[in-house]
Simulated assay, not measured.
Amino acid sequence: MTSSSRHVSRGFFLLVALLGTSALAQSGIHALTCIGTQEMTFAPGLKILPVDVTLSASANLDTCWSLDTDVTSATFQVEVTGSGSCARGSYHDEIVITWNTGETSTLSMNNPVEVRPLSPSGTTAYGRVVSGRFEGSLVATTLQTIPGEHDLLDCLTGGLTQSMGLVSLSLIQLQP
Rank of each mutant, 00 (worst) to 15 (best):
A74G: 08
S121T: 14
E79W: 00
G82D: 00
V53H: 06
T75P: 01
Y126M: 13
R133N: 06
P112H: 05
T72K: 14
T104A: 07
G127I: 14
V113A: 05
R128H: 14
T72F: 01
N111W: 01
T101S: 11
I146K: 06
N111S: 10
W99M: 07
V113D: 07
V96Q: 13
E79K: 09
A87Q: 01
A140Q: 14
G82F: 01
A43D: 15
T141Q: 09
V130W: 11
N111E: 10
S90I: 08
Y91W: 11
N110K: 09
L138Y: 07
D68E: 13
T63M: 07
V139W: 02
T101Y: 07
G136D: 04
N60D: 13
A43Y: 15
A59E: 11
E135K: 15
G132D: 06
V71D: 12
G84A: 14
L61V: 11
I48G: 00
R116T: 02
T142G: 12
G132V: 01
V115L: 09
H92P: 08
M109A: 12
S83H: 14
L49S: 04
S137K: 10
V78C: 10
T123A: 03
D52A: 12
P117W: 04
L107H: 03
M109S: 05
S85Q: 03
G132C: 03
S137N: 04
V129E: 01
L107F: 01
I146C: 06
A74D: 11
G127K: 14
T98M: 03
R133Y: 11
A74N: 06
G122M: 14
L67F: 09
P50D: 08
H92S: 15
T81A: 11
E79A: 15
T98S: 11
I95H: 03
V129N: 03
S56R: 09
T72C: 12
E103W: 05
S137Y: 08
T69N: 14
A57S: 13
M109Q: 08
R133T: 12
L67Q: 15
D62A: 08
A59F: 10
V80P: 09
V139S: 00
E114V: 01
N100A: 06
T101I: 06
L67S: 13
S105I: 02
S90Y: 00
